[in-house]
Nucleic acid binder design. Structure first.
Lengths: 153, 153
DNA sequence: CCGAAAGCGGACAAGACTGGTCCGATTTGA
DNA sequence: TCAAATCGGACCAGTCTTGTCCGCTTTCGG
């Protein structure tokens, strides 16, 4: 239940990797580092860039960079960037005409409270809560020295 | 995102109807009252009975009855009964072997906190919060007098 | 000035999953 | 004994997500 799309899961992993390195990283490089297929990583990055969570640098020496530190990214931001707005049911915000039983439906508009509760719970968690201690062996964020494409160090 | 299954939505509607009447009601009767197809209602009722939220009375004069008042039913109970346990990702509770990148994955086990937050938010809402004022014109729960199969009263 | 590298954007096919339906078996009241 | 209704399962169709690929644009290096 409450199926979070796998893309969102990937997004968190990629963002964590992005923060662990701290510099500009290419999609293929991130794919190798995370073990996710390259096209999929590219797709995730595209969505994240659209949502303003990462910045894409085009051109030969391009790549992706975090737009904000993970501590300033809410989990709900990531979810919205990947999966769209947070809503458990189609009947949100009093949208009419979506279900044919709306004249009978006894719970019309009541889900809003649930959505708000979920959204609130998700906004209480930053990506920093999901990533930090698992970063490989205390990497210095200010030192983008080692490429470190292989995570098994 | 956070797609709640439509079956769960139906379950809430059916449960609200069940409480509005207060007595023993048949699946076809509930279907007519809610506007949901009968087989679907039957399926929802089956799941709810499995979850212990409603009691099924077999036999000729059978039907379904609420096991508890809606105020004592948590939304998470309904979701668990219909959609299974609440978990946003497959990687919950430290299950290993589910994803091939678990050796690399930097966020292993971190989703548990998110799941708990969601579960907590959902456990704060009872079905009584989703249903009550929309019940058709102040029906007395102690009076199962009128069959009232048609909701357009 | 030109070629290579990398992001950007969309489209597209395959697979998984949910939604919805149906059938037989069982139980119970009339 | 018959009818009504639940129970339990299997089944099929539709939809959605997932994952991939292609061509275009942009920019750096030679």
């Amino acid at each position: 239940m409450l199926r979070l799309s796998k893309l969102t899961d990937y997004a968190v992993v990629v963002l964590a990797r992005l923060e662990a390195e701290g510099g500009l990283q290419t999609a293929p490089g991130l794919a190798a580092a995370t073990g996710i297929a390259e096209p999929t990583v590219a797709k995730v990055l595209k969505h994240l860039a659209h949502g303003g969570l990462v910045e894409g640098v085009r051109g030969a020496r391009g790549g992706y960079r975090l737009a904000r530190p993970l501590a300033a990214m809410l989990l709900s931001d990531v979810i919205c960037a990947i999966d769209g707005p947070i809503a458990l049911t189609a009947c949100v915000d009093g949208a009419s005409g979506c279900c044919e039983t709306e004249a009978i439906c006894a719970v019309r508009g009541r889900w809003d409270k649930v959505n708000e509760a979920i959204r609130n719970a998700l906004s209480d968690i930053t990506l920093a809560d999901l990533a930090p201690p698992s970063a490989p062996s205390c990497r210095r964020p200010t030192l983008p020295a080692q490429p470190a494409h292989l995570p098994a160090e």
